[in-house]
Amino acid sequence: MNKALRAHPDLMRRFVATPFHFTAMNGPNLFAVQSNDLEIALGLRRHVLNHWFLGHSGSSSWKIVRDVLAPDNTDTISLFQDGTIRVLQAGTGTILLYDRERSEVLGFLSKKTSVEHMVSCLVPMLMGDLGNSNLSSFTKK
């Protein structure tokens, strides 16, 4: 039984190394970001320092991975929420997950999704209000 044959590949990209870490403090609130891509880590840190801390309180932890293996058809954006979990999917390859209860943002950025687009467009969509929150409807377009 060859060990190499037995080892499972990381098909979900759960264990991608994320060597770029930054933390920032705003009073008691800690923001921590980690990524496998320096541009993502720096872009998020800048966004948090300039925008996030102004409008949000509480600590949060972010882990965003540049996913070069993902399909890159970023034409449609969909947002999906169930309870404390919110998921934004742009095309197939860009997926951002926000667990409000745990204050965690996790995700994958496809090759073509720029950091600028992520911080200026996708992150506000993911974390903002869901427009007129008429909770009586579960599908809105």
Binding site: S78, L79, M125, S137
Partner: peptide
Amino acid sequence: MSYVLIDKMF
């Protein structure tokens, strides 16, 4: 853009 909000009531 589309969004789906799962509301258990429905």
